[in-house]
Design a protein around this nucleic acid. Sequence first.
DNA 1: TGATAATTGTTATGGACCATATCAAATATC
DNA 2: GATATTTGATATGGTCCATAACAATTATCA
Lengths: 177, 177
Amino acid sequence: MTVSKTSEKSSEKPADPAKVRKDAAEVQGQGPGEALQLGELSEQLGYVLKRAQLKVFENFLRCMASLQLTPAQFSVLLLVEKNPGRNQTEIASTLGILRPNFVAMLDNLESRDLCARIRSTNDRRSHILVLTDKGKAVLARAKKLVATKHEARLNELLGPSNREALLGMLSKIANEF
Amino acid sequence: MTVSKTSEKSSEKPADPAKVRKDAAEVQGQGPGEALQLGELSEQLGYVLKRAQLKVFENFLRCMASLQLTPAQFSVLLLVEKNPGRNQTEIASTLGILRPNFVAMLDNLESRDLCARIRSTNDRRSHILVLTDKGKAVLARAKKLVATKHEARLNELLGPSNREALLGMLSKIANEF
DNA sequence: TGATAATTGTTATGGACCATATCAAATATC
DNA sequence: GATATTTGATATGGTCCATAACAATTATCA
């Protein structure tokens, strides 16, 4: 990749490899040799938020290992249980899942006999979604696992009132940001 | 996909399509026709956390549109500025980025003349990372944008003390969960 | 010393997730 | 009844994440 020395749009000096090597030389073998300084990174909301989310999902997956449910799948089952008789578009869109991507997800859940697509009699284009008996049973077990292993862990880490405050602030961000 | 009716491992009744259709019939055209009920979903930490994170990243990208910096790229620049003279493995690992995936990221930043790889004189296997002058300038502008547009938005939404509390709880989750 | 192991940056590759365009069937609109 | 819209589905491409493998270099240690 050849970069013209004078084609930079801005008025800044062009990159000077010699200068960069000189700067780097002053820093060779510097640093305490061990832990890096996070610096302002630990004050960036996005950074901390992302890392917390990864940890929470990781823990969720561990808690659900016996049921083989991902967070997304769990949310689909919860939503279908609460809103039976809705079609794919409605369920997918309220979860922020695009319809094309929802197809494979439902194929998976249906192949495991957790939920079912039924052709609507009102509108024969759409598929009504319902939980199967097995789906209801699995979801019930999943809820118990989440409550006793996952959310309980949160409570012992933050305390119930902090956990409630955290949820409130995150909801506010999710809805009003 | 043919599913044997009797091959289920569990002792539950096999899937009964007629039963499922009957259950679905009771629910055809049900629901208020409009908004779905989120139900327990809005109490699931993982769900709210993920949605908040998406919103925050989305806002971050809008604020940084003029500089074309993603959250991940911003974090790399911040960390290299704070810890000059470290190699790729060190920077990548403290950010939770796997070394193979860090290569393309650095190719990008280097091609834009924001940072540079310098062969270390101590260990000729490793590449020392430093910001270029342009990289330092861009990062300075990025910090200002983040502070005035991004984090300021958070403050006006939550208030400074809540924002601080939120950061503390998220850090706790990220580090101790 | 010299043979072997470990590390660094890199490439290749595959999976998961996300987004867009497009399609046939069914329905809505006019 | 012609046209437009909606629904589920397929194909496809992009991004991010994870693993295996490789050459160059350095560390280990017999």
